[in-house]
Design a protein around this nucleic acid. Structure first.
Length: 273
DNA sequence: CTGTGGCCCTGGACGC
DNA sequence: TGCGTCCAGGGCCACA
């Protein structure tokens, strides 16, 4: 499930292939995967435009086109963007094929949750799902003070607060659990009760885990692949996610599994207070 | 404000 | 082997 490190890896691998290329054709195999803007259809907005750069905001991939157009892509759980240098028949779950000057980009998604929206770049921030996003965790704007201020308003469980994209953009179930483990803080703690020291530790853990995830080119627990179809390597570094019932790698105590904010949550009852 | 649960989806794991 | 059931979950929305 692509979270910040996976989307960043997709961004990098895709950009290497498609930057400066023109979109010559679009095949909408499952048209619901895309949406246009106002009364303009997706094809109308996108066809013939050149890809100028790729950005990322939280878990959203932003494909910038010329004439001030942006494609906002969200993979949700199982979405993929694959680049192929040569023509290739769409696979079973491929919903959109972009034919470029050199090669093709296939958007596929087994569970059909992922979407690509076309929107004028000037409206990208205020009139899209990007508008409510919190700070970027790896940018200088994200400081322990910012984290503290955002958490101070939340009376919910810390895990729920960190999954909230308004608090912080880009964390999902995997990296929240991993961050909390590294910070030694329980996911059940009320978000606004952390001490200064705990905030600092959590801030550092979030940045460290995300950077390590990017360095490992993402986590391929189930479905994730980058634009070249390659798996990430971060799965082997996971300390708690997917390890419920197994021994903690630090203290040996059995990792506990519980349901929090509607998500499976794994933590060490001894290492995390 | 907050928590919960449903919705969108399919494939894989599991039980009988 | 085959069938039914459950689970995975990001974002959004309705509801208590």
């Amino acid at each position: 499930m692509p979270e910040l490190p996976e989307v960043e890896t997709i961004r990098r691998t895709l950009a290497a292939h498609i930057k400066d290329s023109r979109i010559k054709d679009i095949s909408l195999i499952w048209p619901s995967a895309v949406c246009g803007w106002k009364d303009k259809g997706f094809k109308e907005l996108v066809l013939g435009r050149r890809i100028t750069r790729l950005d990322r905001r939280g878990k959203y991939l932003l494909i910038r086109l010329d004439e001030e157009m942006t494609l906002i892509a969200h993979m949700r759980m199982t979405g993929r963007l694959n680049y192929y240098p040569d023509h290739r028949e769409p696979e079973k779950h491929t919903h959109v094929v972009f034919t470029l000057e050199h090669g093709e980009v296939h958007f596929s998604d087994v569970r059909k949750f992922g979407r690509i929206q076309a929107i004028p770049t000037s409206l990208c921030i205020q009139e899209s799902s990007l508008s409510k996003l919190g700070p970027e965790p790896l940018e200088p704007e994200f400081t322990p003070i910012v984290l503290k201020d955002h958490l101070a308003k939340k009376r919910v469980a810390l895990k729920a607060a960190l999954l909230d994209q308004c608090v912080l953009a880009g964390l999902g179930n995997i990296y929240v659990d991993e961050s909390l483990f590294r910070a030694g803080i329980s996911p059940q703690r009320q978000a606004n009760t952390l001490s200064e020291e705990e905030i600092k530790q959590l801030h550092k853990s979030i940045q460290d885990v995300l950077q390590a995830g990017i360095d490992a080119r993402g986590t391929s627990f189930r479905d994730y692949r980058d634009a070249n179809g390659e798996k990430g390597q971060f799965e082997q570094a996971l300390q708690v996610y997917g390890r419920g019932g197994k021994p903690c790698r630090i203290c040996g105590k059995t990792l506990e599994r519980l349901r929090l904010a509607g998500r499976t949550t794994v933590y060490c009852p001894k290492c995390q207070k």
